[in-house]
């Protein structure tokens, strides 16, 4: 399998000297083309720091990230992020269609009409036909996140980084959105990395789960989820392989947490 993204001994410390806080302690993993990988870890393990380093939004202290073999030092072309805070990631002065089309702002070789058509297509793919001319603030939270996902897909990125995209929506919407994301990832053969604190979500969505330790964070272990690409909210979650994987990840996160000394600094 072609490796799309690779992190090698990624470490990040905030501050210097005695006050330095070592967040990432040397993280290594890789993601292959077309894979859906979840990254999950205990609270405060630096998931967002890791995601920003993968996206090129923030420099790591040591270690490297490579995207398609090239080192990442700034946001590379071909990587899109869907942020948790959809309401502030969308632009309230643009209609939903223009928000999605803005995902192609630096895509060359497309006329503005083609970008408009593509935006329309992506809005339909996330089930928002009829809302093209509305504004994000006229939509519910889940629908706003769909617009942000449509923008990520429209940007024709090889890799989609999902930063807890469903943490702010209600439980039922979350289940629908999980299935939507899986469906889209399959349809567009999209490579995805999902960063989440929700173990069930991590296992349900992924082909492989990367489990992190507490700070200074390293990869505790990886676990392949051999449930096929087709998932179902009811039967998959009852499958003994799903339950075994969930058990494994939860145990590992619990042992990380209980091993943690009181970190009230």
């Amino acid at each position: 399998m072609d490796v799309v993204l690779e992190a090698r001994q990624l470490a990040k410390a905030y501050g210097v000297g005695r006050d330095a806080l070592q967040v990432l302690g040397g993280i290594s993993f890789s993601v292959g083309k077309g894979e859906f990988v979840s990254i999950v870890g205990p609270s405060g393990c630096g998931k967002t720091t890791l995601l920003f380093a993968l996206a090129g939004l923030q420099k790591a202290s040591t270690g490297t990230v490579t995207f398609n073999g090239r080192p990442v030092t700034a946001p590379p072309r071909g990587v899109a992020v869907v942020f948790q805070d959809y309401s502030r990631s969308l632009f309230p002065w643009k209609s939903n269609r223009d928000n999605v089309a803005f995902g192609m702002v630096r895509v060359e070789g497309l006329s503005s009409v083609q970008k408009r058509d593509k935006a329309q297509e992506m809005l339909e793919a996330v089930g928002l036909q009829g809302f093209e001319d509305k504004y994000p603030w006229q939509l519910s939270g889940g629908m706003q996140q769909r617009v942000a996902i449509a923008r990520g897909l429209a940007s024709q990125s090889e890799l989609l980084l999902l930063d807890e995209p469903l943490a702010a929506v209600d439980a039922q919407t979350r289940a629908d959105m999980q299935d939507l994301l899986l469906d889209l990832a399959m349809r567009f053969k999209q490579t995805c990395i999902l960063v989440t604190h929700d173990v069930e979500e991590a296992v349900y969505m992924a082909d492989r789960v990367v489990v992190l330790t507490r700070r200074p964070t390293v990869v505790d272990h990886e676990i392949a989820i051999n449930l096929g690409k087709q998932r179902d909210q009811i039967t998959t979650r009852e499958d003994h392989r799903f339950l075994a994987a969930r058990h494994d990840v939860m145990m590992s996160i619990r042992s990380s947490r209980t091993a943690a000394p009181a970190t009230a600094a």
């Binding site: 700034a74 946001p75 992020v81």
Partner: peptide
């Protein structure tokens, strides 16, 4: 201006 909006712009290659 919200960091998220600026990061969104950075990710879009602006």
């Amino acid at each position: 201006v919200s960091d998220v909006q600026i990061r969104t712009g950075q990710m879009l290659g602006l």
